[in-house]
């Protein structure tokens, strides 16, 4: 059972391959959770926690519960990425870059808790897979070719895996280097694979902003691999990335 909803300002697809009568109810719960997360953390909603923080009505230093967890995660990954990922622009708090992956993770946990073992959740091109697409078959995740029609750049074969891609080819050069305040333009796209969607998503965003140093950064992270495409349409990848991929046939 597959469902697509526009939530958190992006298309989110959940595809359950376990054939169970409670699949629809699980999807209801999944999207309800994403709606709840959007209501709490969207910078575009005036009544969200994030908007209240930026309006001065809520003090982050006194945040508790889930918001405190989110803030702690933002600080952790800001430190882990040398500041290339940051939820702060000056005094303004915007955790969207973390919340996207975190929301995917929350959605997957809902499915896990209900015993689903074959599914993926895709939020605007960032994907978490679990189990098999069909008996004996891994999920097949195409890495979008940034220019060529009728092509994907590579196919990632996945069982339990997170795949996150940051790119400029569709949304414009939308990722700024927080150290210069200017858009990162050295890569067209950067795909990060690994066990955790929060980490993969944050790393993809942060390392993309690093430009050509992205692969060095990812290569130094245990469990994560990366595949970059530069404006000359050359692909570069970390050493073990190939192990996740379908072989290229000419």
């Amino acid at each position: 059972m597959r469902r697509v909803r526009d939530v958190m300002g992006m298309p989110v697809t959940a595809d359950l391959r376990d054939e169970r009568p409670d699949a629809a109810a699980a999807l209801d719960a999944l999207y309800a959770e994403l709606e709840r997360i959007d209501a709490a953390y969207s910078p575009f909603r005036g009544d969200s926690l994030v908007s209240r923080v930026n309006a001065g009505a809520l003090d982050l230093a006194r945040a508790d519960g889930e918001l405190a967890d989110v803030v702690a995660l933002c600080r952790r990954y800001e430190a882990a990425t040398d500041g290339y990922f940051s939820a702060w622009r000056g005094a303004r708090f915007d955790p969207s870059g973390l919340v996207k992956g975190w929301a995917i993770d929350r959605a997957c946990r809902i499915l896990d808790a209900r015993g689903f073992a074959r599914y993926f959740v895709d939020a605007a091109g960032d994907v978490r897979t679990r189990g098999e697409r069909a008996p004996g078959e891994p999920w097949r995740i195409g890495i979008r070719h940034p220019v060529e029609r009728d092509k994907v750049a590579r196919v990632v074969l996945a069982y339990d895996l997170a795949v996150a891609t940051s790119g400029t080819y569709e949304k414009g050069a939308h990722i700024d280097d927080p150290h210069t305040g200017r858009p990162a333009t050295e890569l067209l796209s950067l795909t990060v694979v690994g066990p955790d969607i929060v980490v993969a998503d944050v790393y993809a965003t942060a390392a993309f902003a690093m430009g050509r140093r992205a692969l060095d950064f990812i290569a130094a992270r245990d469990g994560y691999e990366a595949y970059a495409i530069d404006p000359d349409l050359r692909a570069t990848w970390t050493s073990a990335f190939e192990a996740y991929c379908e072989p290229v046939t000419a």
């Binding site: 697809t13 979008r144 940034p146």
Partner: peptide
Amino acid sequence: PMLRSEAIQAQSANIDVISGATYT
């Protein structure tokens, strides 16, 4: 051309899902 490739290649390459920006 990139968008165009999605609609066609996604089917012919037998892909479950595509990783990449998808707003438009």
